[in-house]
């Protein structure tokens, strides 16, 4: 598959078909998910209506980690096989992942105020999520810090692989330390401990966020590939003149 997509035109052809599909899935799942989350699902017996923040917050946090792992994996592919497309995917994922991280932090903060009585607490989960946000920012800044694009790509790729160490820390922070943040209740060995009436909108939102990610990723990668194409054409033009 790596070799197949080494040709960007194949990728462009495939994504031109996938892009509208992901758009439809994203809009439908998020729309339906929001309906279930805001109208159909019951309020929590302790948290009452504020539990509805969960449907925005939890999938955003999942996507924040998913995007980072995607960046690290495609960076590894880019470093090992010098795969051009892998670099572009990593580069295009970074701002999306940073936005998801910001969304998770912001909604978590809004949820923390009524539940914990504070906008922000310095427990392990929140701190490691904040570090993830800084890693995203560092990645983006480092990528653009070099005059030579490929240098920036490789330096940022190494940084993203180093930063992967933060992902298991985020995941297990709620088990290793006594945190105010609740432990995992969906992704568990014995199955989720969330009632179906709440699990349905949560999963719909998760699917919607994932489709949204791919939709945005396709837009960004296609734009990136087109920028490269234009740049090459400009170089050719100046050479012929």
């Amino acid at each position: 598959m790596f070799n197949y997509f080494a040709n960007p035109f194949r990728f462009l052809r495939l994504t031109s078909k996938l892009q509208p599909i992901t758009m439809l899935v994203a809009l439908a799942a998020i729309g339906l998910g929001l309906f279930y989350a805001l109208v159909e699902s019951p309020p929590d017996y302790q948290q009452s209506e504020t539990v509805r923040i969960m449907y925005v917050h939890v999938p955003a946090a999942w996507m924040a980690m998913f995007c980072y792992v995607t960046i690290a994996c495609s960076s590894a592919v880019a470093l090992i096989w010098r795969h051009m497309l892998a670099n572009i995917i990593a580069k295009s994922t970074a701002p999306i992942g940073a936005s998801f991280t910001f969304l998770a932090l912001a909604t978590g903060s809004l949820w923390g105020k009524p539940m914990w009585g504070a906008w922000w607490v310095w427990d392990a989960r929140l701190t490691s999520m904040l570090i993830l946000f800084f890693l995203y920012l560092g990645y983006i800044v480092l990528y653009n810090a070099f005059d030579d694009q490929s240098r920036g790509a490789r330096a940022a790729a190494i940084l993203s692989i180093v930063g992967v160490i933060n992902i298991p820390i985020i995941k297990f922070s709620v088990d290793w330390w006594n945190t105010l943040h609740q432990p995992a209740s969906v992704i568990k060995i014995n199955g989720p401990t969330v009632h179906p009436s709440m699990l349905t909108p949560l999963m719909l939102m998760a699917v919607g966020y994932m489709a949204l990610y791919f939709w945005l990723l396709f837009i960004r990668t296609r734009a990136e590939l087109n920028i490269n194409k234009v740049r090459k054409m400009l170089i050719q033009q100046t050479e012929t003149h």
């Binding site: 701190t127 570090i131 800084f134 890693l135 920012l137 560092g138 800044v141 480092l142 810090a145 070099f146 005059d147 240098r151 920036g152 330096a155 190494i158 940084l159 180093v162 930063g163």
Partner: peptide, 25 residues
């Protein structure tokens, strides 16, 4: 790691702090 990554970068001083201070936490 940060010191090696920023070799040849623009505004490397500020960049270095953005890269490694989070990892120092």
């Amino acid at each position: 790691i940060g010191a090696a990554l920023i070799l040849g970068a623009r505004r490397s001083g500020v960049l270095l702090s953005v890269l490694i201070l989070p990892l120092f936490i």
